[in-house]
Structure formats: C-alpha cells, structure tokens
Design a protein around this nucleic acid. Structure first.
Length: 153
DNA sequence: GCCAACGTTGGC
DNA sequence: GCCAACGTTGGC
C-alpha cells in the first residue's frame, strides 16, 4: 500500500528546482530518530512525496517526488567535513539512514503555508500541528487530496 | 533576531 | 528513570 510523505527542505540549500535538475537525490542529513525509523521501517520504493520548502520567504508545498531507493547508510555521517558528521556513528552499525528521492513534478504554483492554514480540510493535519518539527512524516491521503485540489483553485 | 516547541544530553 | 540545561527547528 502506497504511503504519502512530506519531506521538508530549505530551498536555499536544496530546492524543488535543484531536485528537477538532478532528477534523483540522496536525502541526507536526517538526524532525528523518529524520522530515521520511518525511513527505515515505513517507507517503500515508489511512495509519493510532497516536497515542502521551509525556513524561507515563502514556506509551502512546492512539488511532488517519489521514494527512489531502499534505505541505506547516510554517507554524510562519516564525513568529517560535513555539517552532518556524527563522530559517534559506527560504520559497522550506521546510526543514520537515507533514501534516494526522485523528482516527479512542480506544483503549478507553490501552495503557501498561509493558504494551507486556512483550508478547513487540513485543520487536523499533522502538517499544521503545533510544534511539528519532524522533517519527514506521513500525510493522510485525504489531506493530500485537499492539498492537490488547492492547486487548481 | 525572537521565541515557542520539543528533542537530546548528562548528572544524579 | 528523572529532569534541568542546552540545542535545534522553523515561522514570523
């Protein structure tokens, strides 16, 4: 059964335009155990992804992608010069995982957080839940429907 | 730069 | 296992 996911990215670092350019990208730098467990246990190749731009002038949902690989060790945890270097991670038992994410398409226009906030169908969504700092989490199909319907309105 | 929320760390 | 201190996230 296919799951929909939301993945946050800071467009200054890596935007939906960048994903389109490279087509497929190792989604590295996830350093939260809950998110790590979902990458490991709950994602599947072919799952769909909402790409969300955060920490930027226009936060919101920018495009669609797909999970393109199984989970594998995030190489940045072993790179001493990386922001994501984790000296406590052991190569024999890597602490952090990633998956490849494949570009599907841009939304016709970015659906801003301001618009998401006023859509009643999303009032109970995790996306809008107070204090949600997870950079990866599943999205209910009916919430996805509501979001994609906003693309045409 | 501020601040609320929340995860992680480490002393006990 | 508790909990205070600290760090990070992310909107504004």
């Amino acid at each position: 059964m296919m799951t929909w996911w939301l993945m946050k990215t800071e467009p200054d670092e890596f935007s939906i335009d960048d994903l389109q350019r490279v087509e497929s990208e190792p989604w590295t730098g996830i350093r939260n155990y809950q998110a790590r467990n979902m990458i490991r246990d709950n994602m599947a190749i072919g799952d769909s992804v909402l790409i969300y731009h955060s920490s930027c002038p226009q936060p919101g949902i920018a495009g669609l992608a797909k999970v393109g690989s199984d989970a594998y060790a995030d190489p940045t945890q072993f790179q001493a010069d990386s922001d994501y270097f984790d000296p406590k991670s052991n190569p024999a038992a890597p602490r952090w995982l990633c998956r490849d994410v494949r570009y599907v398409r841009h939304l016709s226009t970015l659906i801003g957080l301001d618009r998401l906030r006023v859509q009643p169908l999303l009032a109970d969504s995790r996306l809008l839940a107070r204090g949600n700092r997870l950079s990866i989490f599943p999205v209910d199909p009916h919430h996805v429907d509501a979001i994609l319907a906003m693309e045409k309105s």
